[in-house]
Design a protein around this nucleic acid. Structure first.
Length: 262
DNA sequence: ATGACTTGTAATACAAGA
């Protein structure tokens, strides 16, 4: 079984890329973030034609938004609010044999890494704290669960192209990195990115648009993560990064990360 | 050397991404 996660930066703008990725990689489940469309306007028929006849969409107009698309039926699905906001940052499904898939889009956090001066950063820290509480309260570690998404934190030194330079930048500050690792510990989560590609190897899933040579020079960040709980340890077979998509015409700034489960 | 870009909204800038 193959599960992919991808921040597509607008599912309507990138629909051709989604089709191309699905044809080449054949995921059974595709978790999207930043669909940037209301649930009503989501292009569900186009995606159903790819075989994803089971869909849960948590969208809103203009910003954010997540979706889980599947060839396999859901036994249950859920979209819940975080930090008391109805801002379309999470969706979850339960497949057969109680396999849970959680798809997150964690707040980016704005420009200034100071929760007093920047309410977006405060929101991001609150969100990360709530994820820790959730992992404990739901006994995430005891479930068969896959957590994926754009978590908007690159927690390890080699998760950014220049640790020394970027440790003051939102997404790689010590406080965010601590909070992300605390979430992983709260759920006893395995960081599959680093299980398959250990430090100090550079490992990235995002290259910004603003610097045109970012991808060519590999000035990237690892913001997109795939995490699994202890009951799934034996089932994890492989993890892949679909780097080629970043070279396609008018790409998303993120690439897909692909998990193979037995 | 993360800006210099890209998106959606709405009407020619602005917010947001990170």
């Amino acid at each position: 079984m193959r599960i992919a996660t991808w921040n597509v930066n607008s599912v309507r703008r990138r629909l051709d890329h989604v089709v191309r990725f699905v044809e080449q990689w054949q995921p059974d489940v595709l978790c999207l973030q930043e669909i940037k469309v209301s649930t009503e306007s989501f292009p569900g028929l186009d995606l159903a034609q790819l075989g994803f006849t089971h869909q849960v969409v948590n969208g809103q107009k203009g910003y954010n938004g997540v979706a889980i698309l599947s060839r396999l039926p859901f036994e249950d699905d859920e979209t819940r609010q975080w930090c008391g906001k109805d801002d379309a940052r999470h969706a979850a499904v339960r497949l057969k044999d109680s396999l849970m898939i959680h798809n997150f889009y964690v707040p980016a956090g704005g420009d200034t890494p100071d929760p007093e001066a920047n309410e977006k950063f405060a929101h991001k820290l609150d969100f990360l704290a709530e994820m820790q509480d959730w992992a404990r309260n739901e006994n995430l570690a005891g479930q068969k669960a896959v957590i994926v998404g754009d978590l908007n934190v690159a927690p390890l030194e080699n998760d950014v192209w220049n640790h020394k330079r970027l440790k003051r930048s939102v997404g790689h500050t010590p406080l965010e990195c601590e909070q992300m690792l605390a979430f992983w510990q709260a759920g006893q989560l395995t960081d599959l990115g680093r299980r398959f590609f250990p430090e100090p190897e550079p490992l990235y899933s995002w290259w910004g648009y603003r610097y045109a040579q970012a991808f060519a020079k590999n000035y990237g960040w690892r913001l997109d993560h795939v995490l699994t709980t202890p009951p799934l340890a034996e089932a994890v077979k492989a993890l892949s990064y679909a780097r080629e998509t970043r070279s396609w015409d008018q790409p998303s700034d993120h690439i897909p990360v692909v998990l193979d489960l037995a």
